[in-house]
Amino acid sequence: MAQFDTIRSAAGARAAQIDEGLRAHMNKVYGTMSVGLLITALAAWAIAGLSITSVPNEYQIGADRYLTELGYTLYVSPVKFVLMLSPLAFIFFGWGALMRRGSAAVVQLGFLAFAAVMGISMGTVFMIYTPYSIAQTFLVTAIAFAGLSLFGYTTKKDLSGMGTFLMMGVIGLIVAMVVNMFLQSPAMMFAISAIGVLIFAGLTAFYTQDIKNTYVAMATHGDQEWLDKAAYDGALSLYISFLNMFQFLLMFMGQQE
């Protein structure tokens, strides 16, 4: 009986240790994601300021609003396709290699660099939409994200079955967006935006539960280097979900300049 109590006490202590480690792990995930969003916002705001001028030139985009040479290069010239596709290329081809071969510090640096590039590509948000509508949409996105992530963390329901279905939805969404670049259909863009919000809302809950389950499954191995990289991987997943929800909601809620 004494031996059983000892085993039970050891198991309880181990469970408490894992719970404490999980809280620290999730804090690191959310903290890293938040830093990434801040870098993206600052980069987008800064590049937008450098891309717009009130000095008349041939690149007029609105009343008393003109593109600078930098703005034209980034958002009108063929460079825009490089800027648009480089984040996708990094996610699909570069991130996996970085996770396999890079140290935790290198993975963290890769995430922060990715956030900066995303900010440059999103400079048009500050060029097109009013500051009030950007702030309003960000607040709505943050509230929705917090609720969805909390659900993913606390629910007892296994959400793993959603993963494959939602990722197929993301691929379909990308294809539809590429097609609509040529069609320029407002109705199709509305449908893409609505479906996009739903897909990334589901992915927020799915990723949160997956991050939690992965930590619990691997914490007993004590590989801190791997756990650190897993935290940055989770931060990237939630960062992408948040950013996409924000952009799709902005299409509904945003007021243009």
Rank of each mutant, 00 (worst) to 15 (best):
I199K: 00
F92A: 05
V140N: 04
G36R: 04
T73H: 12
G152M: 04
T6L: 15
V76E: 13
E20G: 14
D64C: 00
T130N: 07
E257N: 15
T214M: 13
R101H: 12
G21H: 09
R14H: 12
D158A: 07
S54C: 08
Y129Q: 03
K229D: 06
M162Q: 10
T164P: 01
V79S: 00
L150T: 10
S193H: 06
Q3S: 13
Q256V: 09
G31M: 05
F4M: 08
N244L: 13
W45H: 07
Y30W: 08
G102M: 02
I18Y: 11
F206L: 11
M189Q: 14
L250N: 07
Y59Q: 14
A115T: 08
V170K: 02
A16N: 08
F242L: 03
M122S: 12
M1H: 10
E257L: 01
L249Q: 02
A146G: 08
T214H: 11
S193W: 01
M189S: 15
A15I: 13
A44G: 03
L227A: 11
T32Y: 01
V55D: 13
M253V: 00
M84Y: 12
S149I: 10
V35C: 11
G152H: 02
V170S: 06
L249D: 05
M162F: 13
A231G: 01
A104Q: 05
F190N: 15
A142I: 01
M26K: 05
Q60L: 07
L227D: 06
I134N: 05
S86F: 15
A176E: 05
P87Y: 02
I7H: 10
I199C: 02
F111W: 01
M99C: 04
G119V: 01
R65Y: 03
V216M: 15
Q255H: 13
A201E: 03
Q184I: 14
P56Y: 02
A48G: 10
M189N: 15
T204F: 03
M26L: 13
G94A: 03
A194S: 05
L70N: 04
D210Y: 09
L236I: 14
L250G: 01
M1K: 09
D210C: 04
F114L: 07
T220C: 08
F93W: 14
